Amino acid sequence: MSDQRVTIEPASLFDNIEDGQIEFTGSADADAYRFALRYDVVEAMSGAIPQGDALAYVQANLTEIEPIAARALGRDYDQELIIISENDLV
Rank of each mutant, 00 (worst) to 15 (best):
V58T: 03
S2K: 09
A56T: 09
D78K: 14
L37H: 09
F24M: 08
L89C: 03
R34P: 01
D76S: 14
I84S: 02
A28M: 05
I82C: 01
D53W: 08
A28F: 07
V58N: 05
I22H: 08
E80L: 14
Y33R: 02
I49E: 15
R71I: 09
A56D: 12
D15T: 00
A11W: 05
Q4S: 14
A56Q: 10
A36S: 09
E64A: 15
E23W: 05
V42R: 10
Q79K: 15
G20C: 06
E86H: 04
E18V: 13
L73M: 06
L55Q: 04
E18S: 15
D78W: 09
P10L: 08
L37I: 01
I65E: 02
V41S: 04
G26F: 06
A56M: 05
G20K: 08
A28I: 09
P50Y: 06
I17R: 04
A30Y: 14
F24N: 09
A30Q: 14
V58I: 00
S12F: 00
D53F: 07
I17T: 13
Y33L: 02
N87W: 10
I82L: 04
I17H: 04
E9D: 15
A36M: 04
L55E: 05
I49N: 12
R34G: 06
Q59S: 07
I83N: 09
A28L: 09
D19G: 07
D29S: 12
V42A: 06
A48L: 11
G26K: 08
R34E: 15
S27I: 03
S2L: 13
R34W: 07
D88A: 08
A70C: 06
A56S: 10
A70F: 00
Y57D: 03
E18R: 14
L62K: 01
E23C: 10
A32R: 13
Q51M: 13
I82Q: 03
L13S: 01
N16M: 03
V6I: 13
Y57G: 02
L13T: 02
I17G: 02
E23D: 10
S12E: 05
P50T: 06
R71G: 05
Q59R: 12
F35Q: 10
A11I: 15
E9L: 13
E80S: 15
A28K: 01
D78C: 05
L89S: 04
S2Y: 09
I49T: 15
A48W: 11
D3S: 07
Y57P: 11
D76H: 14
A56W: 02
N61R: 01
I68E: 05
A11D: 15
Q79G: 01
M45Q: 10
D40L: 04
A44C: 03
S12W: 00
Y77R: 12
L73R: 07
E18I: 12
Q51G: 10
V6G: 00
R71H: 07
A28P: 00
L81G: 05
G74H: 00
D15S: 03
T63Y: 06
E86A: 10
